[in-house]
Design a protein around this nucleic acid. Structure first.
Length: 321
DNA sequence: AAAACTCTCAACCGCCGGTGC
DNA sequence: GGCACCGGCGGTTGAGAGTTT
């Protein structure tokens, strides 16, 4: 098959160099993969254009680089994004916006492309369901006060379940295995860098979770400093608005050592994630009392159910936001 | 069963900054 | 300083798989 012509968009715009070199485009074949892996195994990475030529691949250097980094590299992790990774992505995106490669640095084995795809397909889908812009204050607040706490809950529930089967370790804080009533312990100055969050290697940025001297989860300043797609240097929060406080959450089989940061809580029970920090008119406590959104059993893609969406939209309507 | 629709993700594009001549 | 080349990044596309009608 002539891969070059496989993608209509690609076949329309061909550089003269491509035509003279008869470079291939489109999906990689098994043989090409094998050739690239073999060459890099024997010679290492180098200048990608010359590598492509030396390896006998009729591909651009860019294409080889992309294939290697996003797919063939031995340490690339594939498959579902874990809850911890989801939480990390939400958090880091709140800080850095669409800096996918930077975010990927903190998710070992995940590529910027994968994270970008996750954001576009999952996160933006939720924004679409809520009929609001993914960069809007409403959506960011909903993400912070609904989605992230819910992720934390599920992580915690999973950890509690693990603890039930392996009672030798205990959570830092009180815990009811299998329930969602565990108390989060505030740890405002905890700096466990390079935390063993996922398969032992999920490193956190140096200021991840650093407490501000003044809590910032107020209607006035929430979701105003970050999360724009066009980040100027003055727009990048030095401290994430999502990670004002550490919350000790065991996230793997060694809960006594591992803590996962999450924002917006100050020693609150997870049963009240909407809590007292949200006074923008979106009465999330009422949402909680409406109790639909805390119902368990959903999947990571179903953190927003129909009721959530409906209620959220009602709040938007009622408050005139 | 099949058409229509939705979702996922690999791959490409253009732009930009770094580097060497 | 100017130019060319290269690598890296974020944005976008579209094929194919999956789901719904």
């Amino acid at each position: 098959m002539d891969v070059k012509a496989a993608r209509g968009r690609s076949s329309n715009v061909q550089s003269s160099e491509d035509e003279t070199m008869d470079l291939r485009r489109g999906p990689w074949t098994v043989d090409e993969d094998f050739t690239l892996i073999n060459y890099i195994t024997n010679h290492g990475e180098g200048r990608w254009n010359s590598l492509a030529r030396a390896a006998g691949l009729k591909r651009t250097g860019k294409s080889c680089r992309l294939r290697w980094l996003n797919y063939l590299r031995p340490d690339v992790r594939r498959g579902n994004i874990t809850l911890e990774e989801q939480l990390m992505i939400l958090e880091l995106h709140s800080r850095w916006g669409n800096r996918w490669s930077k975010i990927a640095q903190y998710l070992p084995g995940r590529t910027d492309n994968e994270i970008k795809n996750y954001w576009r397909t999952r996160v933006q889908k939720h924004a679409k369901q809520l009929k609001c812009d993914v960069n809007s204050k409403q959506f960011k607040d909903a993400m912070r006060y609904l989605w992230m706490p819910r992720l934390v809950e599920r992580i915690q529930a999973a950890a509690a379940a693990t603890a039930t089967t392996a009672p030798a370790t205990t959570m830092n804080g009180t815990s009811s295995a299998g329930s969602t009533t565990s108390t989060i312990t505030t740890n405002t100055h905890h700096h466990d860098h390079n935390l063993d969050v996922h398969k032992g290697q999920m490193a956190l940025p140096p200021d991840f979770g650093v407490a501000k001297t003044t809590p910032s989860c107020t209607p006035e300043n929430s979701s105003t400093a970050a999360s724009s797609d066009s980040y100027g240097t003055d727009q990048i929060s030095q401290v994430s608005e999502f990670t004002d406080y550490y919350v000790n959450i065991p996230v793997n089989n060694n809960p006594s050592q591992d803590y996962f940061p999450i924002a917006g809580f100050q020693g609150q029970s997870l049963t009240s994630p909407a809590g007292n920090y949200f006074n923008t008119g979106l009465d999330l406590q009422a949402m909680e009392q409406n109790n639909q959104w805390l119902e368990g059993g959903d999947t990571s893609d179903n953190l927003w159910n129909v009721e959530d969406t409906w209620f959220f939209q009602q709040q938007l309507h009622n408050t005139g936001i």
